[in-house]
Amino acid sequence: MKRKEETLETDDWRHEYEKVVLSKKYHAAARDVALAIQRPEKTNIETAMASLYEYVASLPAAKQSTKTQRQEILAKIDTAYTALYGDLRDGATLKAIQELGLKIGYVRQGINKVPRITNLARVSLYLRDVLAEAGDLATRMGLRVTIYEPPVRGARKILEMEGIDPEELEDV
């Protein structure tokens, strides 16, 4: 019984720790996705995808239902990946492109015509939706925290609390 209580206590701390770590990862992913929306280039989208993947993969999946939901979100990121890098002759790639609503144009390279995705912004928006979904899942699991404004500490706190002007303190 005692052992169980101790385990609960440890899990409590782990939960708190996870909250902080995941919140940081969420903010990193949100920042990268915003950048990918601002500049829908392949490099930015790659970074956003990586951050998002890191966040989703870090979500703890203790229950089977959570595990399934996490797999679904990871599969969505995989779809975006396939759409960007997949072989166009492959059926799965074409399906992914269709799902994301991408358009393929052709760019001339010498005598060849190379296929290119023309509306990369759709991928950024797709990643935005995936991020929101992952955020919802984390919230349902109680793993999202609101990061407050850092509290006033140190000498400034005492000065504010006592209502003292720092220059007045010099004249004491």
Partner: peptide
């Protein structure tokens, strides 16, 4: 801004 020291507390 002053630092939190014992000197600061004495002044307070």
């Amino acid at each position: 801004s002053p630092r939190l020291t014992l000197d600061f507390l004495a002044r307070i």
